[in-house]
Design a protein around this nucleic acid. Structure first.
Lengths: 385, 385
DNA sequence: AGAACTATCAGAAACGTTTGTGATAAGCGA
DNA sequence: TCGCTTATCACAAACGTTTCTGATAGTTCT
């Protein structure tokens, strides 16, 4: 028979149903229900972190008093306050941010969803965001969608469940449905899009001068004498692919060059995609004499291929890319780019979000465009050479 | 006079001290203390997020029952469970992870402290960590120390206050005192060091084959005919600087080459530091004929300088670096490196941490060394050329 | 029929904070 | 002296969960 865990009697104990799969017992003598605990996980070493209650007990005062003393509230005697602060130091107290956030309904945490930290743009933007967050008393929770729509959705769900105060998001390559963003909007959680924005929804956005950048680069190629200009875009669904394509077309139009669909290529912007696209270009009946790649890395890959085939850069073929990079600068020939200032984008995005959080999500949504800059380098500089 | 906010009487209201700087009143008629609220922040729109209590009210059952139903506990009738699940969908319920964590004493969150995401090594390692975290049901909270000891300390404090279940850390360049790590250990929070580890403390670590990598690179230079080999290390306090220096010396010793202190340079590994160090080397009475840079980027910078001065690579001067990179691969001449597999380091670190979390921090501390690989490229390949 | 047992649920306590309200001793003016 | 006023603190409720304990209607067995 089973011994009662309370009165230790054996006689009065009978079974009383199941709880969480385990047999439950009832002691008729002391009227106590219990289940047998397997005592492996027993040692609940609660004692690791000091709480406000520990301080209160230690000082013989109320927890609320401790809280007020530590938070600099007014109705505390200097004497008590000093004692509390000292005790907090002595007992190595750290506030439990979970409890604080739960109570206040504010976490001071910003969620960031990024498709790929390994892209220098995102790494730099993220670093700047972190910096500003620290300065303004926020924390950052980064989620990485790895360019997957499913993970991106999971990420936003997670961040909402963590009750972040706001969300910064740049969409994955795959993302075509935006219900998860609508959900965030429905919950009235402030959100700001940056870089890879969603044009279906009315959210605050921080973007590059995509049109101007693309226009400038292509016009630069034209001014260097290029007439057959290839463009390697990102995925067709990408909003920025479309905008940059428009800039490309506008530049051609301005200079009376007809748009040739053969020269327009969409890609996944993966590593080594530049090689494949280059092969496509070079095998055209009339290969381009200038190429604009949306991702600078792909432009460099193309240049590597071009050099292998003894094609002279920039005279036989010129190259330009969107976004600057160590690689662009140090590669030979160095790559002409439209620099889009990742730090400024990150900065603008998080500042916009924080402002929106402060204003209880009442800020009218707006689109902020970060001015970029054409940096001309050897990959396209024909005239002066 | 002041009107009582409760009984609306005017006569019985007297002042009763101050609370948080504001005048407090007391109504003698209804025995009520109050202060005048400025009603600007009044509209507490609590209604944004559905809670378990909302579900319980909606269904007319107890919150505890709702919790059990949603968590798949056993003592729930299938009928009730179905109703609860349906209500959760209808009312768009998402659990509040803050409350859950507070209650369970586990956050399922791992804190990561990284000195600089813009270094490809950390970006790649971080990406892999995120991936594994998602797969194993953890979240990741990334903090960026920006190579500052002060921020690093702040970061660990923050993460501890957030009650993360464990900590992954790679130290900043500045970090020389490790009290903040001792603090983490004292709180019994699992921690794992990776890459830039701390050799003063007995923590689990994941490192590269720093000695072997350094040895292999230098020996490779020697076998290519170099005899005067320069080495550009990180900060002198860096544990890995020391280890890699030992590898360097061991390789020289093995081949009977005397160590020349002039060829050993410490640096901050900043952008363009390679240029300065190169200038130092080139101005020596006997410039080195082979150079090993601890950061591949710096090696490339040196090569750029060397090319400017018409120095033939690798015949007049050969270069090798630690850590592979797009840049190393695509630069011309491509750089010989010891590749240290950032993904594997990230993977090993987080797996070690999770194992330690599961085992309640009882895992004996160990050091895991991730095998690297010498990748020979044109920057050093003399013989076959 | 009555005891033993089961299934199912409600209620309360707990996690660690913050904040609203009640209470008291002391100071002050009339 | 007595009532108004202040400073200071304790207590309780709340944040949203989970889990322990108590309770009851029904089922099975003898």
């Amino acid at each position: 028979m089973q011994k009662c865990v309370k009165c230790n009697s054996v006689d009065g104990v009978i079974k009383s149903g199941f709880l969480r799969g385990k047999q439950r017992f009832y002691c008729k003598l002391c009227h106590f229900n219990f289940i047998l605990e397997n005592d492996d996980a027993k040692p609940t070493q609660k004692a690791t972190q000091t709480t406000i209650v520990d301080l209160a007990k230690h000082l013989g005062i109320a927890p609320s008093t401790v809280s007020r003393a530590l938070n600099g509230k007014s109705d505390i005697s200097p004497f008590t306050r000093k004692a509390v602060v000292q005790a907090a130091i002595d007992l190595d107290y750290r506030p439990n941010l979970l409890a604080q956030s739960l109570n206040k309904g504010k976490t001071n945490t910003i969620g960031v969803v990024i498709p790929n930290v390994e892209l220098p743009f995102f790494a730099t933007a993220l670093a700047r965001m972190q910096q500003i967050a620290v300065d303004t008393g926020y924390r950052i929770m980064v989620c990485h969608s790895s360019e997957s729509q499913a993970i991106e959705i999971l990420n936003t769900e997670t961040l909402i469940s963590c009750r972040v105060d706001g969300l910064l998001i740049s969409h994955s390559k795959e993302t075509t449905s935006f219900d998860h963003i609508r959900y965030v909007l429905a919950k009235d959680v402030p959100i700001v899009h940056f870089d890879r924005v969603c044009n279906e929804l009315d959210t605050p956005k921080v973007i590059h001068e995509d049109f101007k950048g693309s226009f400038d680069l292509v016009e630069h190629l034209i001014l260097q004498g290029c007439r057959k200009i290839g463009i390697m875009l990102g995925p067709e669904k990408f909003y920025i692919s479309q905008i940059r394509l428009e800039g490309y077309k506008a530049a051609l139009n301005k200079h009376g060059i007809k748009v040739n669909e053969q020269y327009i290529v969409y890609s996944e912007m993966n590593k080594n995609d530049g090689i494949r696209v280059f092969e496509y270009f070079i095998n055209l009946p009339e290969p381009p004499d200038g190429v604009f790649a949306m991702l600078s890395r792909n432009a460099i890959e193309m240049m590597v291929e071009a050099k292998k085939r003894q094609i002279k850069i920039p005279d036989e073929m010129a190259f330009v890319g969107f976004g600057d990079d160590t690689l662009c600068e140090l590669f030979e020939p160095s790559l002409t780019v439209f620099h889009h200032f990742p730090t400024k984008v990150g900065e603008a995005a998080i500042n916009l979000l924080i402002e929106n959080i402060d204003k209880k999500n009442m800020l009218p949504s707006c689109t902020k465009s970060i001015p970029g800059e054409l940096i001309v380098r050897n990959s396209s500089l024909r005239v002066l050479k």
